[in-house]
Design a protein around this nucleic acid. Structure first.
Lengths: 126, 126
DNA sequence: GCGTGATTACTCGGATACAAGATGTCCGAGTTTGAGCGG
DNA sequence: CCGCTCAAACTCGGACATCTTGTATCCGAGTAATCACGC
């Protein structure tokens, strides 16, 4: 049970954008070289962040990516959910009537972690 | 980021052993047919539980598996760690001087979930 | 009845096969800006 | 100066290739109880 590398990248991407909040768009290639990722793969992750409404993209010359929300409001959970998805970490599949007590406990455990991540803003970390 | 099926099985295995606490050993094949898993694969999971000191195995005729600890003391965390391992869910790999603030936050989030799982005993669930 | 060996009922562990998902690359398509050029 | 075209700088998205990991099976080896048999 591990978070994917994409999540690690995504967190650092958004952290970077929170830290260096310039007015102009941030382009793909400079960001890729700063984070030491390949531009192709970075593009994939950025697309996920766009779909999650965390950042915004503008095509064309001088295009690039900008934060969409207030930078004080972006939580770790927002970014993680963008790359990991929102399906629960544990699904029982054995108890067909969906009354598995173990599953209930696991969901509560996950909630404990999620509330922590929702309260933790990237702005506060950096 | 999902728990493996092996973890799901392991939790139900131990839950079953906690519930039906007979004196004699529980053998592989009856357990497999009760949980609807293949005996071969069940054997693998049981081996992991043995190595984690949660259950005990005795070979030979009338052999099988028995709980090793007091059944009131077995937490969800014990079982999960047996199958998932104990490495952290998030490792940064980008900050070579190991001072990544994101990583620290993620570890705390994981701790929040772990303390919940450590306090939750299988005996209380069933 | 008593040792001795064979059989049976078990677990253990390695090797292997298969499937799925994570990771990463490539390329064509769309989009905007700006430069160049002809009238 | 105006408008047109074209190129350049970008992102977007799908189609791959590859690698790792989870999932599952099979089989031989080891182990302990029990049964059979000869003495």
């Amino acid at each position: 049970m591990k978070y994917t590398k994409a999540t690690n990248y995504a967190l650092h991407i958004v952290a970077y954008m929170v830290k260096y909040d310039k007015r102009d768009n941030l382009s793909l290639h400079p960001l890729a070289s700063h984070l030491n990722i390949s531009p192709s793969y970075l593009s994939k992750i950025l697309t996920q962040l766009v779909k999650a409404n965390i950042i915004q993209s503008t095509p064309g010359v001088n295009g690039g990516y900008v934060l969409r929300k207030n930078k004080e409001d972006i939580s770790l959970f927002d970014v993680i959910q963008a790359t990991e998805g929102s399906s629960p970490m544990f699904t029982c599949e054995m108890d067909e009537n969906h009354a598995c007590k173990i599953q209930e406990a696991m969901e509560e455990a996950e909630n404990a972690m999620e509330t922590y991540l929702k309260n933790k803003k990237l702005f506060d970390i950096i």
